[in-house]
Simulated scan of single mutants.
Amino acid sequence: MSIRMILAAVPLALLAACGPADKPVEPASAPAQPAARVQGLLPLDEYSVGPIMAQTPFKAEAIQALFPDDRVETRRDAIIVVRDGVQMLDIRGEPGLSTVGEIHIAGRSGAGPRGELFGMPWSRLDVPLKRCWMGKDAFRHAVICTQPGESVLRYVFEVPGWTRDDLPPIDGLARATLRDFIWKSGAGGYVPAGGGA
């Protein structure tokens, strides 16, 4: 067989190997989200709160599908998830979008990406002080911190006896314990540490 014949046969062999497609491939959409009940503590990280991700619709039926064994309620501008009679998630919509935005996670309901758990002291999380600020509204008098490289997940610390609106001194923070988590989808951008919830 001549080199010219071999070179002519190669494209045909490649086409034959590909074979006909059974049907056109649909464009990829949002990844499938598990519908099974999340057992135990919800795993929290930059991308999700258990089965909830940034692209999850802000609709009670969408949240109920992710938590089929739990009670899902709509209250004013929030969707609430209640498990065993205890509120574990307070979900708000992302402004200007139809997806989830900010989620308040009751401390006893979640576990951070490094194993952070409810009641853990501030000193054990090794959070730089410059990444902490005082909370507002529902989190007034609480200290909120983020880990380097994790602006989406925020840690809410309770400081015993602290009722001021400025950061407590280091000895006060040494007594602070993890109370709750706040997760923000990031879809609409962020207020940098030092401002916001």
Rank of each mutant, 00 (worst) to 15 (best):
L12T: 09
G40V: 03
V159S: 02
V72G: 04
C145Y: 07
R175G: 09
S2L: 09
V159I: 09
V152Y: 07
I52F: 01
D84T: 09
V25W: 06
V159F: 12
M5E: 13
L41Q: 10
G96H: 11
P27D: 04
D165K: 14
R154D: 12
I80H: 02
M88P: 10
T99V: 05
D171T: 15
G19M: 07
A62G: 08
S109C: 11
S48Q: 15
K136G: 02
A13G: 14
D77C: 05
P57V: 01
D22N: 10
E102P: 00
S185Q: 04
G93D: 00
G172V: 03
D126V: 13
S185G: 15
R124W: 02
L15N: 03
L167G: 08
M120I: 08
V38D: 01
I79F: 04
A78D: 11
I52P: 06
E61V: 05
R83E: 01
L117E: 11
E26F: 15
P68H: 12
D77E: 09
D166R: 13
L167F: 06
D84V: 04
R114M: 12
M5N: 13
G135A: 04
G186Y: 04
G119R: 14
S185V: 01
T99P: 08
V72C: 03
V25T: 12
A174H: 05
K59G: 04
L173P: 13
I170P: 02
F139G: 02
A65Y: 10
P68F: 12
G195E: 14
P27L: 11
V38L: 00
I52V: 13
R164P: 07
I63E: 13
R124G: 05
P11Q: 14
G19F: 11
R124D: 15
L44P: 02
G119Q: 07
P113R: 04
G19N: 11
F67V: 00
P43M: 03
A142Y: 10
G196A: 11
P20K: 13
V38P: 00
I3R: 15
